[in-house]
């Protein structure tokens, strides 16, 4: 149970070092930050500055080399894969630059996927699916495969999928990286609306217009937040 004023993500002195062909690469060099409920944070910065790595630590898909990441009060590196996966499934939503929709599934099947994995009852699944498709404006494209959609539509489908289990935290990694400017603005407005409904958002982007939508704007450089 997370109290209203408690941070849902708490990162303390987190570092992340990768080893590539025997060379150690420091992607994060001691980052401390918090994400509170209903907060909208944008993280900007040049390529390779560690933005995506930080996002991955927040979502529990990666673990810090040193330091600590608390996700909904749980220290991520102490959790089993099962618990961490359940946290991601039920409380965190992910949006990727490349969408990562499953190409053999229709839009509605893609959106239903997290609900099926969470074991949601059929009736509730159906109701929530309708709500989500209307919410992102894809009700008319529900039976289409991702290959038949435009970039913007694919990202909206991915947003609907990320919201399927009503997460408290939405992590978006360059969500407008593969779409044109106008579509990027639409996606920005959609994210603002989602945040307005109580979902905390952490947005990694190069796009200054999109970053400007956030209430807290951070910049990363050489693995450090500024």
């Amino acid at each position: 149970m997370i109290l209203m004023n408690e941070p849902i993500v708490q990162i303390t002195e987190a570092t992340r070092t990768y080893h590539l062909d025997g060379t150690a690469i420091s992607a994060l060099r001691g980052v401390t930050m918090e994400v509170r409920q209903e907060e909208f944070i944008s993280i900007a910065g040049p390529s390779g500055s560690g933005k995506s790595t930080l996002l991955h630590l927040m979502g529990g898909v990666d673990l810090p080399t040193t330091g600590e990441v608390r996700l909904f009060g749980n220290v991520t590196h102490r959790l089993t894969d099962r618990t961490l996966s359940n946290l991601r499934l039920l409380r965190v939503g992910f949006i990727f630059q490349r969408f990562f929709l499953l190409p053999m599934l229709t839009v509605e099947e893609n959106v239903l996927l997290p609900m099926l994995e969470a074991g949601l009852q059929a009736q509730r699944r159906g109701e929530r699916l309708e709500d989500l498709l209307s919410y992102v404006g894809l009700a008319h494209r529900r039976r289409h495969l991702p290959g038949q959609l435009s970039g913007g539509e694919m990202q909206r489908a991915a947003i609907a999928r990320a919201l399927a289990n009503r997460p408290h935290l939405l992590l978006a990694d360059e969500p407008t990286g593969e779409v044109d400017q106008q579509t990027g603005q639409q996606i920005g407005r959609l994210l603002q609306r989602i945040n307005g409904e109580g979902v905390a958002i952490v947005l990694v982007t190069h796009n200054p217009e999109l970053a400007a939508l956030a209430s807290t704007r951070l910049t990363m450089r050489d693995g450090l937040l500024s």
């Binding site: 898909v61 099962r82 991601r88 997290p114 994995e117 990320a162």
Partner: peptide, 11 residues
């Protein structure tokens, strides 16, 4: 990887 990020367990 995306499925895992969305909450699919390793097993």
């Amino acid at each position: 990887a995306a499925l895992r990020a969305l909450g699919l367990r390793r097993r």
